[in-house]
Nucleic acid binder design. Structure first.
Length: 354
DNA sequence: TCTGGGGTCCTAGGACCC
DNA sequence: TCTGGGGTCCTAGGACCC
């Protein structure tokens, strides 16, 4: 038997959950984002396929979405509903004979020993449909990278397989940005070096990219283009490295007394999440996005790791004091970082797959 | 087009130490 | 005078993902 990695991705997950409880929306363009008012600041969380056909996609400002698709149904984000649906899906996956790694509300990796990964993929789709009435697509690969990339070719509600054998015939001529972890910025820098496609990146000497992208990312780019990835599927419980809260104001705030009050409020909310996590925080980071969309951060280590609201709030105020400009503010954020795993002296950090 | 909120990991540069 | 060679820790920012 062979070890296969399967990547499960729910189709238009958030929009699908909304349509399930409002059947009259089926077949209509549905856009979920913000508080459901497309005149306000906010972006699209998920658009139904009908809305996507009109140019509406995740991350698009709601104000742009309503212009492109004025007859769409706009709905507010209802986290609790998506968390409940997600929990049902993940529970169904965990009852299969596989290692399951949850990657968010609507995604998971499975690792399984099987000679028929397509049969397992079909079983996954069937179980999820039976238990949640949701459709998913499944990618099959010899590692997480291949499985993740394969899923896109299976959408909607299909299955697609990538292997070391088929990697280049499927992806070789695709732009480097098609890869998982390569975004617009990196693609543009690669293009500046004469590297446009996955195949071109795969042919590049990893060492040649170190001066441009650093000792970790440079070689990682080439390995990724070759369809190689050391990252293993793990079912170890997720342990957040940090927890945070941030808010974009509907109108910019120019009163810095109000800024301070908001930071205090956010800090206390974060402290509640720190307490819930059951581990003390080691640092507090304050984020300020000024009205022209320039973002800055400042941090304060806690003298000793702490969870108490007072201490996290005081650290947040301390970090806020490092901001010298008193311009109008568009966004404020507070994040608490937990102490990292105690690393033995001289031991390098474990290489992660990004 | 006027750009959310939740995160993760990596890089570069300065401080500091031996 | 005109200047080493590591190594580690810390901070701010960047890029990316869901």
């Amino acid at each position: 038997v062979t070890r296969w990695v399967l990547h499960v991705d729910l189709d238009q997950f958030i929009a699908a959950v909304e349509v399930l409880r409002r059947p009259e929306l089926r077949g209509r363009p549905v856009v979920v984002g913000g508080d459901g008012d497309p005149a306000k600041r906010g972006v699209v969380a998920t658009a139904s396929y009908e809305a996507r056909a009109r140019g509406v996609h995740s991350g698009l400002p709601l104000r742009t979405a309503v212009r492109r698709c004025p007859d769409a149904v706009f709905l507010p984000v209802d986290r609790a509903a998506y968390e409940a649906a997600s929990a049902q899906v993940m529970s169904a996956l965990r009852r299969l004979d596989a290692v399951v790694e949850v990657m968010g509300w609507d995604e998971a990796f499975l690792a399984a020993e099987t000679d028929d990964p397509h049969a397992l993929a079909s079983l996954i789709q069937q179980r999820i449909k039976e238990e949640t009435r949701l459709d998913c697509s499944v990618g099959i690969g010899q590692n997480k990278l291949q499985a993740k990339l394969a899923t896109g070719y299976g959408k909607p509600a299909g299955v697609f397989q990538l292997t070391h054998q088929t990697w280049f015939e499927v992806l070789g001529d695709e732009p480097a940005q098609a890869l998982w972890g390569i975004g617009a910025k990196t693609a543009r820098r690669l293009a500046g070096l004469g590297i446009g496609t996955v195949a071109e990146l795969a042919r590049t000497d990893p060492a040649a990219l170190v001066p441009h992208f650093g000792p970790a990312i440079g070689p990682w780019l080439v390995q990724t283009a070759r369809g190689l990835s050391p990252s293993q599927v793990t079912d170890e419980p997720y342990q957040p490295r940090s927890v945070g809260k941030e808010i974009t104001f509907q109108q910019d705030i120019d009163d810095w007394e109000q800024v301070r009050a908001e930071i205090g409020r956010l800090a206390r909310l974060v402290a509640a999440d720190v307490v819930a996590e059951g581990r003390p925080a080691a640092r507090v980071v304050v984020k300020v996005r000024y009205a022209p969309f320039f973002t800055h951060t400042h941090r304060r280590p806690l003298a000793t790791p702490a969870s108490a609201a007072e201490e996290i709030e005081q650290a947040a105020f301390g970090a806020l004091d490092d901001f010298t400009s008193r311009r109008a503010v568009r966004l404020l954020g507070v994040r608490a970082e937990f102490a990292g795993p105690a690393r033995t002296r001289g031991e390098p950090p474990e290489a992660a797959g990004r």
